[in-house]
Design a protein around this nucleic acid. Structure first.
Lengths: 187, 187
DNA sequence: TGCTAAATTTGATAATTGTCAAATAATATG
DNA sequence: CATATTATTTGACAATTATCAAATTTAGCA
């Protein structure tokens, strides 16, 4: 919980009561490796935060599983479209390692946002961060080739390469497993 | 101004005083075709809304100009990273047609967000919309081929194809002008 | 209207990445 | 520790898209 509150404070420093209020709507569960937090077709009611551990967001695309996002160690993640638009999620979420996962229900969050301008502001900043990350990822996919994208990941999150199977990383980068294998072995 | 306020109301219905307050920080200017709203290297202080008209966000990438975004008729646009992070913009913005452009200064917006929870909430919803659009675009670029991306644009914004030069559309779709030309002429 | 410049298309070829199959390496389990 | 299973790599080939050059079409303007 300390890590969660530290990450929150980093985005926007809430007053003490607001922080207490906000933390109060987060529940934590420890999931075994491979456990599903969300299955495709369900409306996703939660925004998540992973403690020490690893989580994968993915979906089915014509026989294949595509990794949409990887969250390791103390990061937020959620099924953006389902959470905001309250529609069934194409995305599924499972753990790649045994992980402590914190989750906050959509309705609880919305209720707090109504009550507290501070929390509304924090939430706005969280979304802004997501938006910027989304933009950076989009440009990477649009304008970098397989090798450059691999290098970007290697620089930014070397941990991922050690802890996540190659096949998941490949589709996260938007390339095939074979191409990734070639790219990282110097070609 | 009516169109701007209509689009705002669509995102989140502000109370009358809040709407008046919010509209008061927007200034409007009519720009000739080809005028620059933002040059690369400047910190972008504004969020924009284009009335009847067309605007292009682009940047320089190794000798070439890449179109990052196209905004036609009654849509919002801005240099996301520069606006939020207050860093110099890689992106430049110019008009493709004579256009009435509304703009809102970052600091004015932030000040209103401090004062008014309602406006903070509206702003949060605006960013959420951007985030969802960004996600959709990312997936389109990652998983659709040139032909599918062209079709998506043709369905979603047929106007763009009539009013924007092919070379701009091509880089917006992440393909070359030649490939776009082939794709749209049945191949 | 005719001419010039810009935009678009077409052709030939190269580069990148994907696909499918098989081989090899790594890991887990009895 | 041996074996079964899974993950990764390698090879051959195909598909898609990029690149460069040239031809053609379109649009702007005198």
């Amino acid at each position: 919980m300390e890590e969660l509150s530290a990450r929150i404070a980093l985005m926007y420093p809430l007053s003490e009561p607001a922080m207490a209020q906000f933390l109060s709507i987060w529940k934590s569960t420890t999931y075994e490796k491979g456990a599903h937090l969300l299955k495709a077709g369900q409306v996703s009611n939660y925004m998540y935060f992973v403690g020490k551990g690893a989580v994968r967001i993915y979906y089915q695309k014509e026989e294949k599983e595509i990794t949409e996002w990887l969250a390791l160690d103390y990061n937020f993640f959620f099924s953006i479209q389902s959470f905001f638009q309250r529609v069934p999620s194409r995305l599924a979420i499972h753990t790649l390692e045994t992980s402590e996962v914190f989750m906050m229900h959509h309705d609880d969050l919305m209720q707090l946002c109504e009550q507290s301008h501070e929390i509304e502001k924090l939430f706005r900043k969280m979304i802004t961060t997501s938006l910027i990350l989304s933009q950076i990822r989009m440009e990477s996919i649009q304008f970098e080739n397989a090798h450059q994208r691999y290098q970007r990941l290697l620089n930014g999150s070397p941990d991922i390469l050690k802890r996540v199977p190659l096949s998941y990383i490949a589709s996260f980068l938007g390339i095939t497993q074979e191409t990734l294998s070639r790219v990282r072995n110097a070609r």
